[in-house]
Design a protein around this nucleic acid. Sequence first.
RNA 1: CGGGGCGUAGCGCAGUCUGGUAGCGCGGUUGCUUUGGGAGCAAUAGGUCGGGGGUUCGAAUCCCUCCGCCCCGACCA
Length: 500
Amino acid sequence: MTKKKNNAISPTRTENYPEWYQQVVKSAELAETSAVRGCMVIKPWGYALWENIQKFLDSKLKETGHVNAYFPLFIPKSYLEKEAEHVDGFAKECAVVTHHRLEEDSKGGLIPAGELEEPLVVRPTSETIIGETYSKWVQSYRDLPILINQWANVVRWEMRTRLFLRTTEFLWQEGHTAHETQEEALDETHKIIRLYKNFLEEYMAIPIIIGEKTENERFPGAMKTLCIEAMMQDGKALQAGTSHFLGQNFSKASNIKFQNREGKNEFAWTTSWGVSTRLIGGLIMTHADDDGMIMPPKLSPNHVVIIPHFRDELYRDKINSYCNEIRMALSKESFGDRKISVLIDSRDINVGEKSWSWIKKGIPLRIEIGPKEIENQSLFVGIRDTMQKKSILKNDFINNISKILEDIQNRMFEKANNFQKLNTKDIKNINDFNNFFNEKNSNGFAWCHFCGDSQLEKKISDDMGVTIRLLPINSSISDNDKCIFTGKKSIGRVLFARSY
RNA sequence: CGGGGCGUAGCGCAGUCUGGUAGCGCGGUUGCUUUGGGAGCAAUAGGUCGGGGGUUCGAAUCCCUCCGCCCCGACCA
């Protein structure tokens, strides 16, 4: 009857990983490129996923005492100039607004007019404008801490873009906090990176390694950058989120001063931290397979889709009411913090095509309903992550829905976790290191003792395209531990990988 | 910014070398038949061939010019 392909996505992951990724984004209807170079349209299915990420992360941030606010999209150029390292880091990728009006030219086109006295930079991040604001809000130690988050868009004029992973405009949350003491700010930096790790592992089913960035990889202007790194299915690392201890660099630049408990003026200690729509790219590259997206149940826009099979017009009404009955019953059940979300797909298209469209979108469970199911009071259930299909008694399914979804969520994490473990090696000498990263398609994570020389780090990056993703936060080292490259004393076991 | 390529129907492309009046596949619409893993048949709609200028009896095709996009390199969440 129908031609049967082995899988829905072409090419497969092994055939061409980057192209496979693009095809998944497209086939799952998560996003598409737009008329504006480097900017994407996030489609409803992708945006619903982002809304769920927002919802759960936001509530975790609120639970830890943070509140939301909103700061301007535009930043006066002079603000950005105040922190020297920060300027160096972002200047090359800033979009700049220089005019505030358009006038018609003689050919019926429009030309910019009304040049601004001071150009406005479209925020690449908001440390400077938020810092300026905080300086007005803070006078006393009693005004601290300030724990504010904002959900916003930012613009970074990147040279090469990829949907979700690196786009010119992207959505994120950025937290900006100010504290009385260094210790408190450091605590905040650590608290947030752990919160991110928990969120990614618990909700996104993405196993995470936490660590600290080397100086080369640090956020411009930060004293310390903590990060969460995840392993994609091609063995490359994805930086999925960062938390920065900014010391007093930005408070000095923005003049965030307060009178301390001894009555002396002091600069506040600040932090900033964020995760972005890049998380969706990470979710795809962690879980999706050669049939498309696989949504973790906790974040999937819907948990279940019901697909009626109208074989025979005589059954149409019966099938419809059976579908509705199932939907009503399921909607009363919960999974985690959410009610079960059920769709009935009654589009007038071929059922095979309909099924495949949901497989590609990655909905956790599909239920197909025809006369047979009514007769047996059963459901024909397709489970996305295993691609298993089986008939289940209606009541068994409804009563166990939460457990079924929980199992999917856990399986997804376990699978990704095993993959990460399998592709992570302790490497003890330079030969093994070269072999590990020289073999094509044998990417992965390598833990190695390293001396901390940033010239050497740069050379390895230039020669092999392998970077230090992180230094462990609490490493215990003995005098016997030597750098595998230089034989000098080790600063700890650091994580090497190719990265996105 | 360097190096390469592309612009023809909603999408993907052929036609360009060798000028002759617009084509294929998918998709859309309508009808009928189908339907338990990506449907079939038939009919039908849809294009100032990226813009401007030139050569010519005649330009998607040749020449000039402008614009836009994609890929590869130097940056990054």
